[in-house]
Amino acid sequence: MRITQGCFSFLPDLTDEQITAQVDYCLSRNWAIGLEFTDDPHPRNTYWDMWGNPMFDLKDAKGVMIELADCRKANPDAYIRINAFDSVRGFETVTMSFIVNRPAIEPKIAMHRTEVDGRSIRYTHDVIR
């Protein structure tokens, strides 16, 4: 099962050239870029580890790609994502997020549906390693 989180997750993996184009798009809108990684892709895991500090005031995607290469080297079997952060007052939120690295073998996540009181339905997820 392929983990589908963030933009572009239903597409084939982006090449470095395509990643660079997306980072250029983000930088053209003055969004800050951050890298995060995790080995736990559970849908409820929203707290990924941050790689370095967010990159404010960048003008060129090359800086992001250098950091991405370092993160990939240090965490080859992790999920790595790029977050674009809009720091304009009133927004101040992640505007774009997409996965740029996946482990060679992705864990499987099984979803279980259980009917409970009345017409309520509960869903649980299990990671199968």
Results as ranks from 00 to 15, higher is better:
110 A>G: 12
81 R>N: 10
123 Y>N: 14
56 F>S: 08
17 E>L: 06
103 P>K: 03
94 V>T: 12
69 A>D: 15
108 K>Y: 14
13 D>F: 00
77 D>L: 01
20 T>Y: 08
85 F>H: 14
84 A>W: 03
106 E>C: 10
35 L>E: 00
47 Y>N: 13
62 K>P: 01
124 T>I: 01
78 A>W: 07
52 G>I: 06
33 I>L: 03
4 T>S: 15
22 Q>E: 12
53 N>P: 06
87 S>Y: 12
17 E>V: 00
5 Q>T: 09
53 N>L: 14
25 Y>W: 09
2 R>K: 11
123 Y>E: 11
78 A>M: 07
12 P>V: 00
14 L>E: 02
76 P>F: 04
73 K>I: 07
45 N>H: 06
32 A>M: 04
119 R>A: 11
17 E>K: 12
98 F>L: 01
27 L>V: 02
41 P>W: 00
71 C>P: 05
79 Y>T: 01
53 N>Y: 06
102 R>W: 04
90 G>A: 13
83 N>S: 11
38 T>E: 01
74 A>M: 14
67 E>H: 12
76 P>L: 10
67 E>R: 14
116 V>T: 14
101 N>F: 01
42 H>T: 09
28 S>Q: 10
86 D>P: 13
49 D>Q: 11
122 R>A: 06
24 D>Q: 11
82 I>R: 06
36 E>A: 08
81 R>Y: 02
80 I>Q: 01
7 C>T: 05
41 P>R: 01
18 Q>G: 09
16 D>V: 04
8 F>Y: 12
94 V>M: 04
69 A>K: 15
23 V>F: 00
98 F>K: 05
107 P>I: 01
126 D>T: 07
80 I>M: 04
92 E>R: 14
5 Q>I: 06
4 T>W: 05
102 R>L: 00
28 S>C: 07
23 V>C: 00
104 A>D: 14
6 G>L: 01
35 L>H: 03
12 P>K: 05
5 Q>V: 10
89 R>C: 08
105 I>L: 12
29 R>H: 13
26 C>I: 00
120 S>Y: 08
61 A>Y: 02
44 R>N: 10
78 A>Y: 09
119 R>W: 15
3 I>M: 09
74 A>W: 01
82 I>K: 08
125 H>E: 14
13 D>R: 09
17 E>Q: 02
46 T>N: 06
